[in-house]
Design a binder for these strands. Sequence first.
RNA 1: AGGCCGGUAGCUCAACUGGCAGAGCAACGGACUCUUAAUCCGUAGGUUGAGGGUUCGAGUCCCUCCCGGCCUACCA
Length: 555
Amino acid sequence: MGQPDTLVYLPALHAGQGPSDRNREDGCPAGDARRDRRLHYRLPQGIRKPAGMTETGEAQHVIRARREKLRQLRELGVEPYCYRYEPNSTAAAAIQAFEAAGDDGVETRLAGRLRSFRPHGKTSFGHLEDRSGKIQIYFRADVLGEAGYELVKLLDLGDWVGVEGALFRTRTGEITVRADTVQLLAKTVRPLPYGKEETDEGGDTVVHGGFADVESRYRQRYADLAVNPEVRDLFLTRSRVVQEIQRFLDARGFLPVETPILQPIYGGATANPFKTYHRALDTELYLRIADELYLKRLIVGGLERVYEIGKVFRNEGIDRTHNPEFSMLELYQAYADYGDMMDLTESLVHEVVVRVSGSSRVVYQGEEIDFEPPWPRLAWYEALERHGDVRRSELQGGALREAALSAGVEGADDKGRAALLDGLFKARVEEHLRGPLIIYDYPVELSPLAKHKRDGDKELTERFEVFVAGHEIANAFSELNDPLEQRERFEAQARMREEEGWEEAHQIDDDYISALEYGLPPTGGMGLGIDRLVMLLTGRASIREVILFPTLRPE
RNA sequence: AGGCCGGUAGCUCAACUGGCAGAGCAACGGACUCUUAAUCCGUAGGUUGAGGGUUCGAGUCCCUCCCGGCCUACCA
């Protein structure tokens, strides 16, 4: 965990432990045996049509031509789908080694994808791309021999190849591998949507054409990743965010745990669930909408500090900030309250931002956001007063409904107090919260799982949310640990569901109350939206850009 | 859900006021032993999202539907 450099080359995992070490250098011996086997692996006549692709005209034509190349390769004794290759470096490391050695005598063995290809008769240039970047490869017929160069002539953009040879500098000064051997690792039979690249005078890379259709990029993320290095970088950043969070929490004694995704009673948030069904149990189950209630059961069990980073599922609308499944961090710490959670959240987010982006400041959609703690803190009703021009004392009965109506809250006519307060805040306040900003002390109606204020104000709970750029990224509270009051809160929610038709209201979870009856120590809990944090750190306006495979309408 | 914009070759995009559906790249064949958007010669590639209508004639105008993006409203 927390590997700072994910580009470090990992040596073969089971060197010397495999079934045998024979053929470890070359996973693709050519020969009759292979050709015989080919008979069993022959592809069906019609090329299978992947979902969502129309195989009209050219695509079919191209794929047919590539399959013809497969045949030619096998005729040459080259197996186009290799078993193994053992590179000893990466493009970036090879270039670095060559520079360090003073342009002298560096041999390297690399594997990657053929990103560009410029044949010139008995000579060809191309670029190989691996996870570290690109390096130019120089193929010569007189070096590779007739058979080797025949293979080079059958290469296509996107093919996976392994090359071995000495590094040198071309006439134009580019560090290049002069290939002594070339090995085809996997043939591409469907052309990748590569754009042409050009380096302008400023040294910037300009891509001509390319793969830009947003929906296609999401549906075929593999092609998006293969073709767009900045997309690979983005998901590298995402992984680092998760690693940094884990590192931060591990260092503070938090235990990573896994709780059920399939739940008989869903809870821990106000949201509509996905329903599913278990046959053997003949039971309806729900996909979790939050991890909360199970994690707090673990605190009851004495684990004291736990966290989970995982997917939660909410059966609601899809837009640029909402995906039906999204990733959340939830953590719970015994003996802590929401004040501790404020401090923890500030330092967690700050540290992740600094370690991932190198600075506490990020620019998001043209707006500079500084995560340096402490963050401003504003009480919920104060925020409403400041941005919504409504005072707490004026939000009783009809006045609240009127305020919600005038704020344009949808369905304000027949909503209950909780929904009206929530609607009013969302309509009037959230967009003004550029943050990072802590909004604290939420109305009790909105927070059935939070303790009420210790000062005796029973209408408020010790809960806060963190807002950045108008969106909530974190939610935390002093966890309600009084089982009797918890039952009353659940019952109040159940009444809201029945009387006001508030479907998202919390269900009564008797087993959770039983757990509380065994004793939940004072506990602080916090939830953090991973996707939104990644959006902030990568400057993306759409959540789909930061989810590898976002939910799309099936084709 | 509502509003706006869009869907043309594998990719990125053109196509005037309704008048023969095009280019670049990718692909295929050929030439070329330091290229890098390689170059040069040649070839192929299309149910213009679907259906209907108006018209001598529709990528273009009208209607319906499908799909997507953006904005607004709601769940994080």
